[in-house]
Amino acid sequence: MFTLLRPEDNIRLAVRLESAFPQCTRYMVVVSANGRQDTEESVVLGMDFNPSDSSCSIGMVLPLWTDTRIHLDESIHVFKPVSVQAMWSALQSLHKACEVARCHNYFPGSLFLTWVSYYQSRVSSDQARINEWNAMQDVQSHRADSPVLFSEVPTERERTERLIKTRLREIMMQKDLENVTSKDIRTELEMQMVCNLREFKEYIDNEMIVILGQMDRPTEIFEHVYLGSEWNASNLEELQNTGVQYILNVTREIDNFFPSLFEYHNIRVYDEEATDLLAYWNDTYKFISRAKKAGAKCLVHCKMGVSRSASTVIAYAMKEYGWDLEQAFEYVKERRVVTKPNPSFMRQLEEYQGILMQFKMLFVTYSVVAGHVAKYLMCKCRQLSDHILLLKSKL
């Protein structure tokens, strides 16, 4: 670990964390240094230890800015220390570092924390470890949660609905859905649960629609781009059969299911009017383009493959093929009929169309100017050449 640090930096805390890989060891390390303003600046490093060769690598770099917030939440696990005592030490150290950042107003783009680039350039953990760090930043952990001591006891109806949801998915996965009716499925469900579910009919019908949407196959939009749902992202056999190697996860609520098998890129947003999805489309374009360049296929998914991921694929099509919004939207919707970006995303796509159009006009203008300059230079070269030949003839 120490060989990866700069000599002038200090380790304020090193806490061992749980890992999804039993053989691996992970540490959250808080590193501090004196900045240009002679104040203490801190960064959180994610360190991965490989037991096979005892090597250490950096898998995550997280600067502590003035707006960084530390939360202890029962449903969102940023880092999960191996013990309660370790968690308490981590919280104290992080709160202290964040308080210093707020006191001195450390913000991105300023002269503070410029030294963090040293560690960012040295992220070298393998992709599976990097995926694990990214996956745990913002979403509900798939590992068992800590016991909840004070929580509301679910009602009898809530417990029944949970059981219905689980059994319903199992039944629908086993049935040939082209040859059964919704009534057949409800009857099967009542037989398994040994009770009359008439009062839950509306709930069951709604859940059927959700499950059907999740179970639908991903839609091939382009040869290298598939558009799908959470179900598609969790179906390993289907992913392997379609040749997907890259997965673009455009959700805040869904974790990466197979971080050691696929290359992931996460856009952690909700399907809400306030979400600024446009801000991510440059990064999503680069990720999909990387998959295309590698000769691989990329699955772009959100919860249902309707709004967030569909908007992202439309934006990709506009930039990649030079299409306007109407053409890109109709192309995607023709292939995936459930495509329906929320109104805010549609406005952002219109704004993105304007940005791309301005860029195209600038490029055309640059090309025209460059052409004129080239002609002028060629003309001057000819004149100079003629002048040199004339001088040689006189000599």
Rank of each mutant, 00 (worst) to 15 (best):
Y118L: 06
Y285N: 05
C98E: 11
S125G: 07
L45H: 02
E40P: 05
V194G: 11
E156V: 15
S311C: 07
R290I: 09
D48S: 15
N196Y: 06
D271T: 06
V337H: 13
A14D: 08
S125I: 03
V225I: 09
V368N: 01
T284K: 01
D67N: 15
T275Q: 02
C195K: 08
Y285G: 05
P63K: 03
D283E: 09
P218R: 03
D276Q: 08
L362T: 10
V313N: 01
T284N: 04
Y264S: 03
I211P: 03
R336C: 06
A315R: 01
A144C: 14
D184E: 01
C98K: 08
W281P: 04
F345E: 02
P7K: 10
Q120E: 13
G243A: 05
C302M: 01
S57G: 15
K293H: 15
Q37N: 15
Q174Y: 10
K394N: 13
C381N: 14
Q23L: 11
E8C: 14
G371A: 05
P343C: 04
L362A: 14
Q85C: 15
A294F: 09
I254E: 02
H301I: 01
V82D: 05
H224Q: 07
A317Y: 06
D53A: 00
K333W: 07
E223P: 09
H387P: 09
K292F: 09
A294M: 08
T25H: 12
A370R: 07
S289R: 02
I171T: 00
V139M: 04
V153L: 14
V84W: 06
D324R: 03
D176R: 06
V15E: 05
K360M: 08
G228K: 00
S141L: 07
G46D: 00
Q245V: 11
C298Q: 04
L17F: 03
K340E: 11
L189P: 00
Q85E: 12
S307E: 02
M215E: 08
L13C: 13
Q192E: 07
S151Y: 05
T25D: 08
H265Y: 11
L277S: 05
P7A: 14
R12V: 09
V100Q: 12
L91A: 10
N249Q: 00
Q140A: 13
G59H: 00
T251M: 00
I211K: 04
G354R: 09
E351M: 08
Y316I: 01
Q240D: 10
D38H: 13
P154A: 03
D9R: 02
I204D: 06
I171Q: 00
R6F: 12
R167T: 14
E263I: 10
N131W: 00
T251C: 05
A315Y: 01
R6H: 11
H77C: 15
V369H: 07
V332I: 08
A328I: 01
A315T: 04
R162L: 12
A233K: 00
N342T: 04
L384K: 10
S52F: 15
W115R: 10
K380V: 13
Q245E: 12
E40H: 07
L197M: 04
M191R: 14
A86L: 07
E158Y: 01
L17Y: 01
Y366P: 06
L227G: 03
D271R: 00
N256D: 05
I11R: 05
